[in-house]
Nucleic acid binder design. Structure first.
Lengths: 153, 153
DNA sequence: GAAGATTGACACCTCAATCTTA
DNA sequence: TAAGATTGAGGTGTCAATCTTC
């Protein structure tokens, strides 16, 4: 944590924020483009399929998926529209609560994800491992996790 | 750097990539919203004004500004349209090369930036300094810089 | 009233095509 | 031919409003 004086004076937070924005857009472009070109999937599409696939029965409430992907309710509706139209995801009703709808990954969705994940994970490992060691990557993810942790600790 | 075996096996790059995406969207929302609500500036708008203001004469070739903000040529045209319409930035011709146009921050642009930067930088310091010390922030920006460095070193 | 989902209107950015100038 | 800038068309996401169900 930073003391009051440090907060008001240090340029470290500004430099870190700048680096975060830059690295984010550079890596998003580098890792998102091949996924889109080869499989027609955005990073959010991929993240949705991947998140669903790792749940039991491959299903999740739409509202929970939205939270996991950090998008709004309308955002998840629009995202899933595309995946449903391609038969990669389908809607499931919830008998206990008619307000909720589940998003469920289909067999075709699992197949495409399996294909896409091979090249995508390889790309992630190549790009992220290009200049940093495993120890440094762990250190980095540790710092990032703490950075976005809830304010109170 | 990672060896071939490490690259193919380790989950560290995947975890780091996930953390990067999550932190990016969380902080972008947290730091972008107040800027938009109070001053009608997106993070890109702010970054454009800030970049211009720190150049001598407050001007830059549009193509160079696009590269600095990591957007496409059309992206910088659309972004500057809005700032020009509000009188925060203006176009400047280049007599030596009629193909190029400069973007130049106006007096009004500098005034708005001065206002906005006070609250924005304070917010950056508060959010980034919430859970990490200065040393940790420096360590983080150092790792991020290396992560996005050119492949060959 | 609150929760979940959707829709219309809009903001922002990209790509492909085009225009002007070098 | 290439560089810089712009435009039209389209993709992806948000917000505000609405609908249904709890």
């Amino acid at each position: 944590m930073l003391t009051k004086q440090e907060i008001g004076a240090s340029r470290s937070p500004l430099r870190t924020w700048d680096a975060l924005l830059r690295v984010g857009s550079v890596l998003t472009a580098e890792l998102g483009s091949p996924l889109l070109e080869s499989y027609g999937l955005t990073l959010h599409d991929y993240e949705a399929l991947d998140t669903l696939a790792h749940r039991e029965r491959g299903a999740m409430r739409r509202v929970d998926l939205a939270a996991a992907l950090r998008v709004t309710p309308s955002g998840i509706t629009r995202l899933l529209e595309g995946l449903e139209a391609r038969g990669l995801v389908e809607k499931l009703a919830c008998p206990q609560d008619l307000r909720v709808t589940y998003a469920s990954i289909t067999g075709a969705g699992r197949e495409l994800l399996a294909e896409a994940s091979r090249t995508h994970q390889e790309a992630v490992r190549e790009v992220l491992g290009r200049n940093l060691s495993c120890q440094e990557l762990d250190q980095l993810s540790g710092l990032l996790d703490r950075l976005a942790a809830s304010p109170e600790r």
